[in-house]
Design a protein around this nucleic acid. Structure first.
Lengths: 340, 340
DNA sequence: TTGAAAGCGCTACCAC
DNA sequence: GTGGTAGCGCTTTCAA
């Protein structure tokens, strides 16, 4: 592969006899060139294999076309769907997602925010409402619209597209109670890293406590328990300690599935011996046997809505509008794993 | 949020009394400033809330620090792990992944390549070895190292970190045959979009044909069947047509799980009545009941190796070395779903 | 509709 | 170790 210098606009200009300014205009949908001129220029550009240098264009126009998006994990189907919704919602506006993930670590989040701001995104989307002080500082002084998503922060930085994770926990606790379960546990939700999982647990525990039930069947670890294997292991330990547990909510459908497998291995019938509920409406919840009761927040729709918020915020030159604060409904999906 | 102009290097220079050139040097690990100077400058930068403009830096230095990565789907744990391995492998070299996904569509891939090249990445990673002619053209003339991964292209563009998908199919076919199964089917692998799945099917079919077995139990659709629901539906149809099928490989563990659920719903015992095998070593394969026989290619390791290839290619100023062509081993993991 | 000049914010290069 | 100059490739602005 001979390393030839990449052609620039001047090269296209030289080849066509126009100024590079005209080439610039012709290459955008930006009107103001004659059709004839544009055709000549596009032809020449094609012939030269010219590709616009977005780096230079961004520097000059102060519009990079990037939207920075920070999620906890790229290996989480919920966030993956949100990114899809976001990408698709942004597609026609010439904005491109620049993705980063934190592995559920707040200091990694801070590092990432700083790195991504270096790219001069036109907006920044971040998961959750809890950040380091320094991170909040970066976000505040970035000068671009910020969207916090997947949570309902007490003091939002700017826009919010999220829901109360505590409410999700409450809804599920009530459902299990209504189904007649009384020895109810929860698996997952570490306070330090999986903040939203911890919120779900908090809401869950509050509610079963309100119902006068015991709140000691709570399994947690210093790591987020969001995997199948983690749920399976946790369920073993929970059952070892409290063999008479009759219902468990897990912080995620994945851990719920793992927990369910553990129950089946131990000869427990679901939901007769024990009920299992999850969160997130992952594929597995609809396809497992039995199907798993879960809560759907519409991961993809969150992304779509974030895209709308960004587009309207970027269009609003006067900054006259208040920040958006969109509350996503948390929909309980009752399935066989909790409904006998 | 008052919209204040973002501070630049000149602002930091002015505040400290140094030239912006010295500020530039101090901000990089790039030595050649006194410690005292650097401390003053970093302090001032911090005070001003200065964040480097990577756009301008990239334009000037001709190093954007981007590595463009194109995967079929962000909702696929295999590719997600590869991206993780890649990101981590690149972390300390100051390179950042710029991710795009194609939804398994070749024309979308072409569009994406063009868009991403606009960002002037220092290297480009793409999934698979089949691309549109125009796409190959873009890649060839991009002037940056290209890595094709997850496949073993007959005529590589540049570097390759992959494996033969056909071989994976052959390995599984042989395994099923060795276990004594004789009425063997395959689910998934559309030729047009899931090219690698189709390669697995091809290798699989070749092998069962070599063994003298019938090759009519092949279920396919015009969509990639890589989901649990897709596998479940396909299995129903396959069993309706060929109720005596005794073994099935699916293009993915996810569809294998769906297929297995269908079998269980229909009262079939696995692996006694029917064996199920998948591909990809997804979490579900290790956690389902029974556990699912699969093939592991080490998705994360692929990313790690790609990172190494990129780093060494970028370090090799003379372009003296031949393109890398790394063959990833395909490891059969025998589990209960095929081993009675 | 087109062009010339200026400059986006940074770094390469060469001086000192 | 530090600074001046030039310029990366494009778009903005103003003029014709």
């Amino acid at each position: 592969m001979p390393k030839i210098k990449t052609p620039t606009m001047s090269d296209v200009a030289r080849l066509t006899g126009f100024s590079s300014m005209t080439v610039s205009r012709a290459l955008r949908a930006d009107t103001s060139t004659s059709d004839e001129t544009r055709i000549k220029i596009l032809d020449a550009a094609d012939k030269l294999g010219y590709v616009l240098d977005g780096t230079a264009a961004g520097l000059s126009s102060r519009k990079t076309g990037f939207v920075a998006v920070i999620i906890p994990s790229i290996n989480n189907a919920n966030f993956a769907f949100t990114v899809r919704g976001l990408t698709e919602g942004l597609r026609n506006s010439g904005l491109q997602v620049l993705l980063g993930y934190t592995d559920y670590k707040m200091d990694e989040e801070e590092r990432l925010v700083k790195t991504l701001l270096t790219r001069r995104p036109e907006a920044l989307v971040i998961t959750g409402g809890v950040h380091t002080e320094r991170c909040r500082q970066y976000l505040y002084s970035s000068g671009v619209p910020i969207v916090e998503m997947w949570d309902s922060p007490p003091s939002p930085i700017d826009h919010v597209v999220g829901f109360s994770n505590a409410r999700a926990g409450r809804i599920m606790a009530r459902h299990l109670y209504d189904q007649g379960y009384r020895k109810i546990g929860f698996i997952g939700g570490d306070t330090d890293s999986d903040i939203r999982g911890a919120d779900r647990r908090r809401g869950f525990v509050e509610t079963i406590s309100d119902f006068g039930l015991g709140t000691d069947r709570l399994w947690q670890s210093d790591q987020p328990v969001l995997t199948m294997a983690g749920g399976a292991k946790a369920m073993h330990e929970l059952l070892d300690q409290y063999p008479d547990t009759d219902a468990v909510m897990c912080a995620s459908d994945l851990s719920a599935f793992g927990a369910m497998m553990t129950c089946q291995k131990r000869g427990l019938t679901i939901p007769d011996d024990i009920a299992i509920a999850g969160f997130g409406a992952y594929d597995i919840s609809a396809n497992a046997l039995p199907e798993i009761t879960t809560i759907d927040v519409g991961a993809r729709g969150i992304g779509t809505q974030v895209a709308e918020v960004i587009k309207s915020s970027l269009a609003d030159k006067t900054h006259s509008k208040d920040p958006a604060n969109i509350d996503i409904p948390t929909r309980l999906i009752v399935r066989k794993s909790t409904a006998g």
